[in-house]
Computed example of a mutant assay.
Amino acid sequence: MADPPEVKILLLGDADVGKTTFLSRISQGSASHSSKGPISLLRDNDQPFIFDISFFNRPYRFEFYDTSSPENWTLLKPDVIVLCYNISSRLSLINVQRAWRKETTTHFTSAKELPVLLLGLKRDLRSEEDPNGIIYPQEGYRIAQEMRCDRYMECSAVSGELVHEVFEDICRTAALGTKKEGGGLSEGGCGMM
């Protein structure tokens, strides 16, 4: 039996937007759906974070890379890029729009074919106390469309809300992108999870 295809998924975004916490929550398995107990954070030195999963009756090995530093990922050839921001920090979304999206097209010559997803993290911090700094789903989706992302998603690793669904959506997109036709789902626009 052949080894499962290795699919590289690169999470990009500012430091402290929640990328590591998201991957740490996923790595804790099915118990991660509840918010009981602390999240044991993964260490950057342990990358890639590997998950073996079957999609479409076929096994895959998903390798997740989490970074906020271009020096760490410019040599990587990802199959999917996930741009991450903190829902409670407008600056992190602005940085995704102005810097991170530009970085992907600068460093990856195949960026037009690469699926690019926009992920809002720390959904649990969305509150009515500071309506000017909070990004609501409609705005995140609109910005994902403007940036020509393939999908917009959001979740909370702390509460576990939508983590499983987002992880599954990322992996499904990555699996579809590895088919012979290639990736690049954004021809028709952006989908929302």
Rank of each mutant, 00 (worst) to 15 (best):
D46R: 11
D46L: 14
D46S: 14
P48R: 10
P48L: 11
I50P: 07
D52W: 00
I53C: 08
S54Q: 14
F55N: 01
F55V: 01
N57E: 15
N57H: 15
N57A: 12
R58M: 08
R58F: 08
P59M: 13
P59V: 14
P59D: 14
F62T: 11
F62A: 10
E63T: 12
F64A: 07
F64M: 07
Y65S: 06
S69V: 13
S69M: 13
E71D: 07
L76D: 05
D79R: 02
I81S: 05
V82Y: 05
C84L: 07
Y85S: 01
I87A: 10
I87E: 05
S89T: 02
S89V: 02
R90P: 06
L91N: 14
S92D: 06
L93H: 10
L93I: 07
I94M: 05
V96R: 00
V96N: 00
Q97D: 08
Q97V: 13
A99H: 11
E103A: 13
T104A: 13
T104Q: 09
T104W: 09
T104S: 12
T106N: 05
A111W: 15
A111P: 13
L114G: 09
L117V: 07
L119M: 06
G120M: 03
K122E: 03
R126Q: 04
S127D: 03
E128R: 03
N132D: 07
I134F: 04
I134R: 06
I135E: 06
I135R: 05
